[in-house]
């Protein structure tokens, strides 16, 4: 505090705890910028302040607290999760119905008629624009196969995927769909399969999105990757 312009420690403490008027706060802030002594003093007091909690005795939290906390957080979150995965029940129903159609030898006209009957908005018929067959990437596991339909309803385009014969993901693993354009891949979502190896996914195509010419499905170590890291299981 040898500099005559320096504030007393009282003022630094008032500043540190915000118990100060705006005018003084600005004045002290400006002074601290240029005064190493006061800055050091303030930093030392803050270091001491932050050390205080290290004195506390740590005690175990009650065992039942975790489920209480998680339940309260994720109960509130559920609708958001649904939206994020774009798992709209109408579209799932559509995909499941189509899954049933895969097994039979169908023709395009038949499918178009079926899809026409499944419209979610009665005034807008759903149309199939393109169908992709997905085959096992590993020829030793040809039980795995699937299809993807690019569908249009009004101005909205959706991709609906259905797969069969995949093994169930373990732990954090998840299947992830990639749309491939000129060698770059973008994620179209993640899904899991049931005990029989069936999985479905719908993906909303945005107007401004680049087209794609191929589709790949990989088994990823978790559901949050932005680039493929796992093994490719299906592809066009």
């Amino acid at each position: 505090m040898e500099n005559p312009n320096c504030h007393g420690t009282d003022q630094l403490i008032e500043y540190m705890f915000g118990e100060i008027n705006e005018e003084d706060r600005i004045r002290i802030e400006q002074h601290i910028e240029s005064c190493q002594t006061c800055r050091k003093e303030l930093e030392e007091m803050r270091d001491a302040w932050y050390a205080i909690p290290y004195e506390m005795e740590e005690i175990e939290a009650p065992a039942d607290l975790k489920s209480e906390v998680m339940d309260s957080i994720f109960k509130a979150e559920q609708p958001v999760m649904k939206k994020k995965w774009s798992m709209n029940t109408g579209w799932i129903a559509a995909a499941v119905l189509m899954l049933l159609l895969v097994g039979v030898s169908w023709n395009n006209n038949h499918l178009r008629n079926q899809l026409g009957a499944m419209e979610t908005n009665p005034s807008l018929p759903t149309q199939v624009l393109q169908i992709f067959a997905l085959n096992a990437a590993d020829s030793g596991r040809d039980a795995a196969r699937g299809s993807a339909w690019l569908m249009q309803q009004g101005d909205a385009k959706k991709l609906v995927f259905s797969v069969q014969g995949l093994s169930q993901a373990e732990g954090q693993e998840a299947y992830q769909v990639w749309l491939i354009h000129n060698g770059t891949r973008r994620s179209a979502g993640v899904f899991l399969v049931d005990e029989q190896g069936n999985g479905v996914l719908t993906y909303d195509m945005k107007e401004q999105q680049a087209p794609f010419e191929a589709i790949g499905i990989t088994l990823e170590p978790d559901a949050v990757g932005e680039k493929p890291r796992g093994k490719k299981v299906l592809g066009t």
Partner: peptide, 10 residues
Amino acid sequence: VKLVYSFAMK
């Protein structure tokens, strides 16, 4: 949780 709980108890 131990840290947060201990803090809140203190």
